[in-house]
Design a protein around this nucleic acid. Structure first.
Length: 221
DNA sequence: GCGACAG
DNA sequence: ATCTTGTCGC
């Protein structure tokens, strides 16, 4: 336990400010054997977290999930306080030795440099990367319409992420390091997991399974 | 005060 | 995230 989750928005913000300095950024050049993707969906008053683990050939080797009551509202900048607890419970069920985790949301591309990917990285002590579909903070130039062309996301005078055109004729994705990895390594790893779709396989598959599981649960009620 | 605002 | 069918365009 690093801290409590049942906190007010003000307390949450102070927690983020104190955790930010614990982040570590370093090169990650090895080829990961197992990479996990995380995504959530909502059913009535419950949230469903799904973790998909794939190997280097993009084969799914493990899937775990956890359903819990929604205990925190969605507040921009405090996403981890809404989705973090559910993810952590699903994470406890993972048996595979995961080498890196990709999250739906930002890493350090956050007002206090502690988006959900960074925050969760501190909890699980694993390299993490944030993959977001929209920016939260920062400015950038629109990358050209060519696969893998990119530009940097800047905030307060520093490079906090990469805006990548992962596929032609599609809005770019925002990549930022979470924990135990740096910006350049994050881009290289993510590119390796992009096939013909907008999102890298870990996150893309997690999203598919979270929707699939959700529908299976809905028809049974 | 106004606009922005991950999922 | 979620409510929701077809439709335009690469």
């Amino acid at each position: 336990m690093i801290h409590r989750w049942n906190v007010s928005p003000k307390e949450a913000i102070s927690i983020q400010k104190s955790l930010k300095d614990k982040l570590i950024f370093k090169p990650f050049n090895k080829t990961p054997t197992y990479v996990a993707g995380v995504d959530l969906s909502y059913i009535d008053n419950k949230s469903l977290a799904v973790i998909v683990v794939i190997d280097s050939k993009f084969n799914v080797v493990e899937i775990t999930y956890h359903i819990d009551e929604i205990k925190y509202p969605y507040i921009p900048g405090l996403l981890a306080f809404r989705e973090g607890p559910v993810f952590l419970k699903a994470w406890q069920k993972i048996k595979t030795n995961v080498n890196l985790v990709m999250f739906d949301g930002h890493g350090i591309a956050h007002p206090r440099k502690l988006g959900i990917a960074s925050h969760m990285g501190l909890w699980i002590k694993k390299p993490t990367i944030g993959i977001a579909k929209k920016k939260l903070v920062g400015t950038y130039d629109e990358p050209s319409n060519t696969k893998f062309s990119f530009s940097y996301l800047w905030h307060n005078g520093e490079k906090i992420g990469i805006v990548l055109k992962s596929r032609e004729n599609t809005k770019p994705i925002f990549i930022s390091p979470g924990h135990l990895i740096d910006l350049d390594s994050s881009l290289n790893i993510v590119k390796k997991y992009i096939t013909k779709y907008k999102l890298p396989e870990p996150t893309r598959l997690a999203h598919i399974y979270t929707q699939k599981l959700k529908n299976e649960i809905i028809e049974k009620e």
